[in-house]
Design a protein around this nucleic acid. Structure first.
Lengths: 235, 235
DNA sequence: TTCAACAGAATTGTTGACAATCATGGCGGC
DNA sequence: GCCGCCATGATTGTCAACAATTCTGTTGAA
């Protein structure tokens, strides 16, 4: 605050805090159903409480946290059904975007994709989950940006954000990260070859592993004790 | 506060204020580029400033207003290109939803649609733009709800909300309202008949009038003085 | 006249304190 | 021993005053 080096605008600060919390959720540092106490977060992140408050409101709107009046905010736990519904929409949106990319694709897009993919591969190799997550986001943004409709891209990102709470299972798994890396490479190749059909198929396929891993994990670990046993498939 | 009858929760109050502002924008009572002063709104809507502040933040996230740090909030003016892009996405989403509605449709859906449509028709007949707007929203929600994927419905609503600032042209026009009413009737009929193809076509068609009316209006009235006439709506 | 600097007003951003609300745990009655 | 009730503590919600910023109109000199 006092240092003149970084005097961020208030809105940017809120965004920054929201992004930081989002990362902590994605990386599994904050788990589903975990309570998010305003004052504690304010102290830990070195901002005032009302900034945390606004950030939580933003994350609530995005769908990453739940807030109940007078009781606070929690990391949202997605039900398997919800995850399936969201991934269904994601599939529709992402294949739509892939189908709209003008081919042959602009060379600038390919350059950027290669660069980002290199970063992603390096992060995966180094086992740096946070860097891999960021590079992964950047990759998909660069890829879908090529469709030419920023509002469609925004929707795709919003839906991806919704399941970020479900990503903590795959975001830290080397196997999943390596698979994603290889699939990214295949996508770029398809794009480069102008093979739209393959690109669309790859986008569709790319969504499945994280979805299924999450559903399996949530059914094994986060099931409510309503049935008695820890792992209750359905109430 | 004193009366126990209406003790709204804070979150609900923010939502309520945001919704009220949204309606004022849709109905053309607040025009694009118009300034939204926090204190003035707080007094007019009988809430404290920080509530207005949060509501404005929410409307900014939705895309209905723009906020620049230390300078305040304005009703967002959508560029024609943006409107085209948004409507393009809306078309994809709404036809997707229509294509997913299980046929024959549940009778409860039809009952609800008929009821809402009756309200809408009454509002149109009475020339009550606000009631028509609300009934219109309810109609589309009820219609797309039938697709069975609440997350898709949410996206459809979010995209509709984005162009609410563009709706002030058609929301007050009796001709447009009557056309919408008739198209709604046709949609219900198609749904009732189980004619999916016609339903999808009607959904697609239903989007065009408001889009084109807005683009025409914005090009005629709100053009920046860079090349065109200056139309300052308020002194 | 035009430009720049400057004071004053209007508006937004920030802060800490206070009030309201909900969970927790102890206490007495049954 | 079990249940309901009230005191207590933790946390969120509300508020008004203060600080910082931007805008506006005016003044003075080139």
């Amino acid at each position: 605050m006092p240092t003149s080096a970084l005097k961020l605008q208030t809105t940017d600060r809120v965004r920054g805090i929201a992004a930081a919390l989002e990362e902590e959720i994605v990386l599994g540092w904050l788990l589903p159903r975990e309570r998010l106490v305003e004052e504690e977060l304010a102290e830990r992140l070195a901002v005032k409480r009302h900034v945390v408050r606004e950030a939580l409101a933003e994350l609530e709107r995005v769908g990453l946290v739940e807030r109940v009046p007078n009781r606070g905010a929690f990391v949202k736990l997605l039900e398997p059904l919800e995850v399936r519904q969201i991934y269904s929409v994601r599939e529709a949106l992402e294949t739509l975007a892939a189908a709209q990319v003008p081919l042959p694709v602009a060379s600038a897009v390919l350059v950027r994709l290669h660069a980002v993919q290199k970063q992603h591969a390096a992060a995966v190799e180094a086992g740096d989950a946070r860097a891999a997550f960021r590079a992964n986001m950047a990759f998909h943004e660069a890829l879908f940006d090529a469709c030419g409709n920023p509002h469609l891209v925004e929707l795709i990102q919003a839906m991806a954000q919704k399941v970020h709470g479900a990503r903590s299972i795959t975001a830290a798994s080397p196997a999943h990260l390596k698979l994603a890396r290889d699939e990214h490479a295949a996508m770029v190749a398809a794009l480069e070859a102008g093979d739209r059909e393959r690109l669309v198929g790859l986008c569709r396929q790319h969504l499945l592993p994280s979805r299924d891993a999450y559903i399996a994990a949530v059914e094994a670990r986060f099931a409510r004790p309503s049935g008695g046993v820890v792992a209750a498939p359905r109430p």
